[in-house]
Design a protein around this nucleic acid. Sequence first.
DNA 1: ATCTTATATATGCAAGTTGCATATATAAGA
DNA 2: TCTTATATATGCAACTTGCATATATAAGAT
Lengths: 141, 141
Amino acid sequence: MPQGRCRRHGNGPCSCGMGNIYRFVEPVVLFLLKTKGHSHGYELAGDLAECTLTDSSVDLGGLYRILQRLEGEGFVVSEWDTSGAGAARRMYAITPAGENRLRQWVTVLGNMTRSMNAFLERAKESGVVPLAEGGSDHAAR
Amino acid sequence: MPQGRCRRHGNGPCSCGMGNIYRFVEPVVLFLLKTKGHSHGYELAGDLAECTLTDSSVDLGGLYRILQRLEGEGFVVSEWDTSGAGAARRMYAITPAGENRLRQWVTVLGNMTRSMNAFLERAKESGVVPLAEGGSDHAAR
DNA sequence: ATCTTATATATGCAAGTTGCATATATAAGA
DNA sequence: TCTTATATATGCAACTTGCATATATAAGAT
């Protein structure tokens, strides 16, 4: 938990309060749009809950803002879908620029995992690891 | 790159503009203090440059702020060291609470790498991967 | 008929983080 | 005396985050 610490669960090693960046919201959204073809915010929120490592569900308001930003940057496009019953849905699709962005994310995340593994390796060698008090990570459920 | 995008390098897949969280500043600082015994901000900045995955060096002002926050949270303690020549150094040391925090970070980062690898695996299976245009990650140097 | 719930999108706001610039002081070397 | 390296620290605008709230439609329950 970096800066915005988890205010709900106190001080255990949980992944709450990490913000959307730690939940890989942007790359996962781009990936979902790439594989699904198209989707809308409310549906993406459900899919995201299964792709991310945190117990805290992604903030819906934040997700809509991320989609708005991605559209402003040209990585996704949207249009209203009033065909179905119920409230209108804003359907999103990924653009070629967005697909390129996704490939970039894969590169960056690949570098990150390598760095993180190297750090964890060093930490284990140094014997920092044994039994974290206050134990279980909420994210590990 | 998430929200605060890299303003310097345009649109290549670099790890700039990711903020300190993506550079693992907090866990790496705690780890360095644990293994070194004690250190000060300016020295930690040099060590951090070798432990993090970004090309952009950690912002020194930001690092000092992180150290201040960590002290406020009881994870490190500091005192002035005026013994050596030159400007006074504020020497930091990790506390028992900080060591516990570090163990929690190891747990959380371990979960993160597993989630990231699972995502990258899925992305590769879906054929999203091939050749990101705008190619090299600055972080990969 | 009315109430509640689920679906669906969106904004307001306070608190926090970030990058960049800047201010400060000490000492070594040119 | 000037520049550079060491060393700490704050100001500020821009952005992100979590939480609360506002909105509208429709299905199902009472």
